[in-house]
Design a protein around this nucleic acid. Sequence first.
DNA 1: GAGTATATGTTCCGCGTTTAGACAAATTCC
DNA 2: GGAATTTGTCTAAACGCGGAACATATACTC
Lengths: 406, 406
Amino acid sequence: MRKINPHDFKVARRGTSREINRQIALNLIRTHQPISRADLARLMNVRRGVASLLVSELLSESLIFEGAVGEAVGRGRRPTFLYIDSRQRCVVGVDIRASRTYILVTDLMGKQLGVVSSFQTNKDVNVLTQELTRRINQTLADKEIGSCAGVGVVVPGMVDLALGRVLHAPTLGWRDVSLRDPLAAALGIPVQIENSGKACALAQLWTTRSEVAASANSVFVSISDGVGTGIVVNGELLRGRHNTAGEFGHVPLSIDGPRCSCGATGCWEAYVSNLATLSRYFGHDLADARPRDAETATFTVEDLIARARAGDAKALAALNSTARYLGLGLASIINSLDPARIYIGGEITTAWSLIEPIVRGAVRERTLTDFGGTTEIHIVPAEEHPRLRGAVALVAAPAFAAPMVA
Amino acid sequence: MRKINPHDFKVARRGTSREINRQIALNLIRTHQPISRADLARLMNVRRGVASLLVSELLSESLIFEGAVGEAVGRGRRPTFLYIDSRQRCVVGVDIRASRTYILVTDLMGKQLGVVSSFQTNKDVNVLTQELTRRINQTLADKEIGSCAGVGVVVPGMVDLALGRVLHAPTLGWRDVSLRDPLAAALGIPVQIENSGKACALAQLWTTRSEVAASANSVFVSISDGVGTGIVVNGELLRGRHNTAGEFGHVPLSIDGPRCSCGATGCWEAYVSNLATLSRYFGHDLADARPRDAETATFTVEDLIARARAGDAKALAALNSTARYLGLGLASIINSLDPARIYIGGEITTAWSLIEPIVRGAVRERTLTDFGGTTEIHIVPAEEHPRLRGAVALVAAPAFAAPMVA
DNA sequence: GAGTATATGTTCCGCGTTTAGACAAATTCC
DNA sequence: GGAATTTGTCTAAACGCGGAACATATACTC
């Protein structure tokens, strides 16, 4: 039951029905390909004639193409299969992180073309823009991958979508930095930028085949140096008034808890981020960023997990604490949003087999209802590159999005 | 950018455009009445002919009616004004609370007809159903208010919308109680039930004139014996997977904090509910519900506020603590959802002039961004009966809702 | 191998809806 | 009283779904 905003609505025009059905057809071809016109018509519950017209429109725009005729199931004429045409256009995804920057090229369907490349991040935005331009141009020239539809860039910080600026990215030391337009100008290709937590949520939304999570509510929790979350409601990313929705990382577990990088105390992030886990292991104060010695300077959470698996009791204890706090925070997300599924990404997921019981126990401990405690938790391994996939989705997804109506 | 759910979509039919535009017209008449066909056409940016056809359809369904012709502004034919026809149908709103149950009758526009009546709540659901049936029938017979379109019931607990059952209402002592169908059967009128926090959010969504909050994201925080919240996203109530979204009251401020009625510790509710404020004043333990003496048994938050205003330092201190914790919790809502506006209802709002600076200070203290700290906070006084208005909206709003499309 | 049954894809017409414009009715200004 | 202007209705055209007929293609049967 959605209210129509009387100050901002969209009247249905003569072509609105067609527009709606065109997008439905495109999406069904995307999720069911290869598919025939007749099957499409059956799925849409319209006559074959209508489906045929929609298909010919999509064909003329070369959004789809006709493949070989398929094998007939019974008797009768064999169907001609339709596919999304992702051959001539590619998309570039860029993931800027504090230490390294990653680049991935995919087709419009998000299929990976080539390998993920990376280079050390230069925190000077002008130098970084130049380097990105050089490497993206080089990648696009190397491959026989047709023209580039756009570049999606993901940053670990808050983004002003209207202006294309990074408002605040603590780990990069950026404050109100212009990124989208300079990069677009240098490349001559449209550029989209977005916060990494939101992008991860987008990636899951657009690549998950599961019926449950296809368009229902879900939350992506990304745990690395910080904790970012992206919230999907009704098949749409929740942006909020200033595109800053989803900062669950700074909801407190205990307002009297450890100091967080954001300046407040007791944020969830201050309990479960990689830095928090490492600090717990070394007995450091989280706020004190100075490395104590050579070991702590290069020691990562992966190393800690390896030690825990090898039997280091102190490492396991640090990990178990993180697991418990992780579950307690997830319970807050479940109590407040009741999502159909929660995705978790980040280095900590490599230890999931170790920590899962503790996480789930903590979730049950604080969730208000029994079914809340059974909320699906889905681990997203690093190899799936959720941030890069999200960056790609920024560019590729709009072509498949539902038209705005009413 | 909404994703189309390939497992659950709605194809545009021949009448879909008309359906969309019909609802837009109805909503514009609702918000702009009195309005002429010509003005409607200008607002919708369609030809007068289309608006005329939409209007005649709405007229034939007697959803609207033609009033007297208006005065011409300049020269030219005078317009005939259109109004929402809320004359023949009424709606009953019921607010079941632990102590008393309230009844309100309105027209379809939510305009109050008669006074709010109330009676002591009998926690036996069968007795309560009988009493409700008797009183509602009596109310409907008394007035010359036409037929009743439906009854909306609001309860302080979780509701299973599909089954129409109250899953858990702690203050009423209800667990898995069937309410909707027995009441509907006894009355012979459709009944809708919903959680009170969600209903309050609905009430604001459907009655607010403000452009800002018309369809954007907002959160209603209802503070009484417990803390309930309702979340509105994109002009739609966020229900979540089990209709349990919005339990921000049980997100912790400090997991080591006081024990909450839900069994967990340190919930926001355990810091800011009326019971929490009173416990703080009397120095009780929140978990210990026994009244110590005659005074504490009947002493309410309103009494406490009165004492604070009269100069009772202890009362003011208790109130100020609540205000600070209120602000800290609101900051969590802002950080996680970034709503355009937060509504606050409950007895505590009568002390708003006392506590506002402290609340806002606490919000600023923990919000991640500067604009987060400036999020609009809107006080909803008890006289507006947000729960009852929400109950009414459960019945009245569907007629104005946007059609499901794509 | 011819005929029949069945499935796919195309085409045509009917009908509902928006779009555009003309027209009558009503009202004010000159 | 006539011109100008606004409202509301009406008609024809354009567009798209709804339904059915038709051509095409394939397998099965006799």
